[in-house]
Amino acid sequence: MSTHAEDDVIAPVPVAGSPAASPAPNADRAVASRTREFDNPRLRKDFAEQDAFLYLEDFLAPEVTAQLVHSARALLDEVNRNYLPGHKQGGSVSRHTIDRRAPFIAELYRSKELIGWLEQLSGDKLQVSPADDPHAYALYYYTRPGDHIGWHYDTSYYDGRRYTLLLGVIDESSCRLDYELHTRNPDVADQPGSVQIPPGGLVFFDGDKLRHRITPAGANEMRVSLTFEYVTDPNMRPWRRFISNMKDAIAYFGFRQVFRQMTQRGKDSA
């Protein structure tokens, strides 16, 4: 079901000495330099009024975006392709691969400045996802005609809420994020929307509230997004863990990637 993306058209990775290949920026400083410029009380109000949803066209500092673009292109040989008829086609790179080959992404994910700012928006105390969660931070690739994902929620299998932070990395495509607000609130009419997320753009939402999809890519197009997942309670019941692992193995990262981590965890605890 899963193959690597070696036959995709791959743009050259910047060579050493180019801006994108220069030393990675400090994640905390880069986030702080941006968030202090925002009208954060207004953004918090917007997030609440849109039922836990916020879109910012320009969020990341340019040097952070450049680093993410460099990482995304460098990881093209690690992409796990998957296809679920009628629902999903595309590629993914899990946090376990990112830990090995793009540690700046992990640093950005754990940025205290970033988490603190997201806590202001959500009103929740946020925690990073457990170390064995391949979705904690992951890259998603739309590189072939028809790559897409159908309507869905980012369902939380954790005991608490799970928030998704979606960051635009590469957008050389016609793909759009279509979404519907207030779908879980019977007292408010559903509100549709659609955005094309540029590099450095941000979408932040409660995964159980936002119904959304990514529209199909066209020929010779490329879109890469990065998602961070934060939780309010990192505990997960065993039967939910099984469902989550099977979903990740089939629809995203492959059985070897998901269950190799479980096997390694068992060895470490033995």
Rank of each mutant, 00 (worst) to 15 (best):
I149H: 07
Y163H: 11
S174P: 08
S174K: 13
E172Y: 13
R162C: 12
Y163F: 14
R162N: 10
E172H: 13
V169Y: 01
R184Q: 12
D178H: 12
S156E: 03
I149E: 03
L167A: 03
T183R: 06
W151G: 15
H152M: 14
S173V: 15
H152W: 13
S156W: 01
D171N: 09
D178T: 07
W151Q: 15
H152V: 13
E180N: 14
H182S: 10
P186C: 03
Y158F: 08
S156P: 07
L181C: 02
C175M: 15
V169A: 10
R184W: 07
V169F: 00
I149M: 11
R161K: 14
L181G: 00
D154N: 02
H182F: 06
W151S: 14
T164V: 02
C175N: 15
C175W: 11
R161H: 11
Y158G: 01
G168H: 03
Y158H: 04
R184I: 09
C175G: 14
S173T: 15
S174Q: 12
S174Y: 04
L177A: 00
H152A: 13
Y179C: 10
L181S: 00
L167M: 00
R176K: 14
N185A: 11
L181F: 03
S173Q: 15
Y163R: 07
R184F: 09
R176L: 08
L166E: 05
R176P: 03
G160I: 08
H152Y: 12
L165W: 02
R176Q: 09
T164L: 06
G150M: 00
D178C: 12
L165I: 02
L177R: 00
H152K: 10
Y157Q: 08
E180M: 12
R162H: 11
R162D: 03
H182K: 00
G160D: 01
I149C: 09
C175V: 15
T164I: 02
S173M: 15
C175E: 14
Y157S: 06
R161E: 06
S174G: 11
